[in-house]
Computed example of a mutant assay.
Amino acid sequence: MQINKKYILVFLLGCLLFSGCQDKNNPAQQDVQYSITKSFNNGPLLVNLKISSKHIKLSDLLDMEIQTQINADYIVDLPKIKDDLKDFAIHTQREIGKKLGANNSVITTYYYKLEPIQTGKCQIPQLQFPFRKASEEPNTAKWDVLRTEAVDINVTTQSPIDANTSMADIEDVVDVKTNHLLAVVITFAAVILCAVGYIIYKMKTKKQEQIQKVYRPAHEIAFEMLRKLAGEKLVEQGRIKEYYEKLSSCLRKYIEDRFTLRAPEQTTEEFLDEIKKSNVLEPRYKQELKNFLEHCDLVKFAKYQPTNEQINQSLTMAQQFVDNTKSQEHQVEV
């Protein structure tokens, strides 16, 4: 029986087309170049790990092949790669097939396409392959584990630059015309911004200073000044006039703070006249203050020599005046 040559030719072309389709549909049958190959062994189990490259772009896919070879008397479980991967997502995953190896072993090959999800130093983590004897029940079997090593993968946004790549020369230099008006506007705006910034800075500084101010009652300050004066021992040193000058200044400072009067800037006569016209003091305190200031003036200006008893009475009078007229409501900045 003769077979038409035309039919034979059509049959051969069909086989070729079918073979080509098989190659395209099975990525493991494509010509993948693996730059990383690692082998790991534990007893009856051998694992070969292949990775296409250590450097890829974020837009690329990474090829990975896992091949297990184990004695036929044993069973090996695949690691949960989807859960183990942190820097990659599984784009494609399939089992290529099984075949018999040497010494009654079974070789199984798995293929993966991995998609990077971030740039920088990424990693194929350590993978664990548990295995046991086929004759044992899974729940009661003694499991052993083969562990691989982690593999670092560098993921970039662009391809690594070839060391032999040279930089192209700049062909033309464009002469950029200077816009003087724009430069003036930018300079003026910068000056305005600096001025506004300085004003804001000063306002904040002033506000902080106000917040940090401390206020105390006028009588506390007066008592403190009187204690300090007593501690200077001016009377014991014979400096009576200086003692009375400071004593009257203490009381005038207190009156200024407590009653908002310009006592230190007036003569005794002017000050007493203003006190007489105002209602800030009760009549009895006005008389006490008049006696005290006139006594101080005698010592300061008339060279009057007071006795020790009069000196002590003057200090006591000043202390009592402050104590009788004190108020917590009148605070003074210190």
Rank of each mutant, 00 (worst) to 15 (best):
Y7F: 13
V10M: 12
L13V: 15
L13S: 13
C15A: 13
L16G: 10
C21I: 12
P27A: 13
Q30F: 01
V32I: 15
Y34K: 06
S35W: 07
S35P: 00
K38F: 09
S39G: 07
F40W: 01
N41K: 12
N42V: 04
L45F: 05
L45Y: 05
L46N: 13
V47F: 01
L49F: 07
K57L: 07
L62G: 00
D63A: 13
I66Y: 00
Q67M: 14
Q69K: 14
N71Q: 11
A72G: 10
I75T: 13
D77K: 09
L78G: 03
P79W: 06
L85C: 08
L85Y: 06
D87Q: 02
D87K: 01
A89C: 06
G97T: 04
K98F: 12
K99M: 12
K99A: 08
A102N: 12
N104Y: 11
T108Q: 13
Y111Q: 01
L114K: 02
P116C: 02
P116K: 00
I117T: 12
I117A: 02
Q118K: 15
K121G: 03
C122S: 11
A134I: 11
A134F: 11
S135P: 00
E137Q: 14
D144C: 00
T148N: 02
E149N: 13
A150C: 03
T157V: 08
Q158M: 11
D162Q: 09
S166M: 14
S166C: 07
S166R: 14
A168H: 10
D169C: 06
D169E: 15
E171N: 14
D172M: 15
V174T: 15
N179T: 04
H180Q: 11
L182Y: 07
L182G: 10
A183F: 14
T187R: 11
F188Q: 12
C194E: 08
A195W: 12
G197S: 05
Y198N: 08
K206T: 10
Q208H: 08
K213A: 10
P217E: 05
E224V: 06
R227G: 12
K228E: 15
K233V: 02
L234D: 03
G238I: 00
E242C: 03
S248K: 07
K253N: 15
Y254P: 06
T260I: 14
Q266M: 15
T268Y: 02
T268C: 03
E270D: 12
I275L: 13
K277F: 08
K277C: 01
N279W: 02
V280G: 02
L281E: 00
R284I: 10
K290R: 10
N291Q: 11
F292G: 01
F292A: 04
E294D: 09
H295N: 11
L298W: 03
A302S: 14
P306N: 09
S314I: 05
S314D: 04
A318Y: 00
H330N: 13
